[in-house]
Write a protein that binds this DNA or RNA. Sequence first.
DNA 1: TGATAATAGGGTTAAAATAGTCCTGTTTAA
DNA 2: TTAAACAGGACTATTTTAACCCTATTATCA
Lengths: 137, 137
Amino acid sequence: MLQVSRKFEYGLHAVTYLATKGLGRVVTVKEMADEMGFSQEFLSKAMQSLKRAGIAASVQGVKGGYMLGKSTDAITVADIAIAIEGEPHLVRCGVKADRCEIFSSCHHRGYMNTLQHKIQVLLAATTVHSLLKEVAG
Amino acid sequence: MLQVSRKFEYGLHAVTYLATKGLGRVVTVKEMADEMGFSQEFLSKAMQSLKRAGIAASVQGVKGGYMLGKSTDAITVADIAIAIEGEPHLVRCGVKADRCEIFSSCHHRGYMNTLQHKIQVLLAATTVHSLLKEVAG
DNA sequence: TGATAATAGGGTTAAAATAGTCCTGTTTAA
DNA sequence: TTAAACAGGACTATTTTAACCCTATTATCA
Ligand code: SF4
Ligand code: SF4
């Protein structure tokens, strides 16, 4: 229970990688996949999600690739998670009420929702900037 | 990402149900499953896990069933989660290092581990006692 | 003492979510 | 106009979760 997806980890690694390359520098998916050692195709999906969320920016064509779309202190871990996994739903009724058979008689939904909110606050408390400092320091 | 399992929710509901029945009262899995509207067999597995963790106590034989194994303020949501899902591992390398191909070059493992710890603190902050008060109040 | 109602738990199957691949299209530098 | 890259839909494989089945054990009670 409560394990992050590989896609999220790929995305987080990619963002920190782009961050170390600086805001301007364009990096290809191939370079990142080779450097970090995971599937090019799959990382590509993660990058597309990050781009749609504005976290990454892309340049098409030969010499194209990705770069950061925002400064490192404007990107939180929560942003990356939402970009890649979509809105968080700690409980299945969050996706759609009829996903749970006992929705109407459930007494702990309120608690689970505040719990989810608190987890999001944790994720939002770390920016890519602070994450990089933590690693370096 | 980050969704609790059905088994955990079954367990949480069962514990609060047992709590409202009082410490002494023995309740069968059948009664709980009927009352709360989910699979008897599956709830049974959750109860077995709760029993092994000491959260529930069982009485075998005819007239047997389950009751709480501890007082409601000695059981936290974290205890229930661990009883049912085992030790939490936010990242796959927590289970076993070789579950992740990039373990040796990973720079965000430290952050992920502190994040996991913080989530556990959140879960441990709520006792069944406080959860029941929240629902009632 | 035998029938019965319950927990205990191993093993298997079904369903769902995640991870990974493939293929086709579009963009653009050279 | 070729080639290298992003964009993205569709598909397949793998893994995890959920559910079910079946047998054993325990203990009440007629
Ligand atoms: S048990 Fe309650 S919190 Fe969980 S999915 Fe169902 S309604 Fe939502
Ligand atoms: S990417 Fe890092 S944190 Fe995630 S599983 Fe691999 S080693 Fe662990």
